[in-house]
């Protein structure tokens, strides 16, 4: 019963959205749908949070290996949730001094701001910076001239790497900028790679993706593909 209804909902919602792209009175529907989605996603957080709590509580109660870390997760979760929800340490906005909860949740000096600045930002920025190491080890392993394709990958990366620093300027800076050979300077070569090859390659990929998305969307709207709702085949 729900499944049948779901297929109808998908069809109607999909067709309405396509139509809203072409008929004036319905033009804003896409934005409305996006806003509704945001509300749904925010409400769905309850599901995620419940699951997080369930998984870690069960690890703690069964004393699984590493249950102590589950306790850390739960504690961090509960504390952050509490200080954010109750706006601990937030002052009112100057425009509304009589409304204590009017201040921004992450106003400087508040507890939520502290967690954000010193815990969240520092860990996420550090995780991100691990990439500096991973690009090096990936390049060492993967950039080897095993065949034509790998060689092209390698050469393009090499030119761009050099073209974007002082080293490139030093290596090919002797070629006069106004001569016919100026295109061989590293910075110019890397620009050409982007303007010509990468631009063409990206366009081909993007056009292909657009068709892939179009076919996928069509299959979903028409109910041909519905594995996301658990009634695949």
């Amino acid at each position: 019963m729900s499944r049948q209804l779901a297929i109808i909902v998908t069809l109607v919602a999909g067709v309405l959205m396509v139509v809203s792209g072409f008929i004036k009175p319905t033009q804003g529907w896409g934005e409305d749908a996006a806003e509704w989605f945001n509300i749904l996603a925010a409400m769905a957080f309850v599901l995620g949070a419940a699951n997080l709590a369930k998984v870690h509580l069960s690890k703690i109660s069964s004393r699984d290996a590493g249950w102590g870390f589950s306790a850390v997760t739960l504690l961090a979760f509960a504390v952050t949730l509490a200080v954010g929800l109750f706006k601990v340490g937030v002052n009112p906005m100057p425009a509304f001094p009589d409304v204590p909860m009017s201040g921004g949740k992450d106003a400087e000096g508040s507890a939520f701001w502290w967690v954000y600045t010193y815990v969240l930002s520092s860990i996420t920025a550090t995780m991100f910076s691990l990439l500096a190491f991973y690009v090096a080890s990936a390049a060492f392993r993967a950039f080897r001239a095993k065949n034509t394709e790998a060689t092209l990958l390698l050469v393009a990366a090499f030119i761009v790497l050099l073209g974007r620093t002082f080293a490139g300027v030093v290596l090919t800076g002797w070629i006069p900028a106004d001569s016919d050979w100026a295109f061989l300077r590293f910075e110019n070569l890397s620009t050409t790679i982007f303007e010509v090859f990468a631009s063409a390659g990206n366009r081909a990929i993007i056009i292909g993706i657009a068709l892939g998305v179009a076919a996928t969307s069509l299959k979903i709207i028409l109910g041909i593909d519905r594995s996301y709702m658990g009634s695949g085949d």
Partner: peptide, 13 residues
């Protein structure tokens, strides 16, 4: 950092 990357690629090859 870039010089190291370039060096690594050369050594790898």
């Amino acid at each position: 950092g870039h010089l190291l990357m370039v060096g690594l690629i050369i050594v790898g090859n």
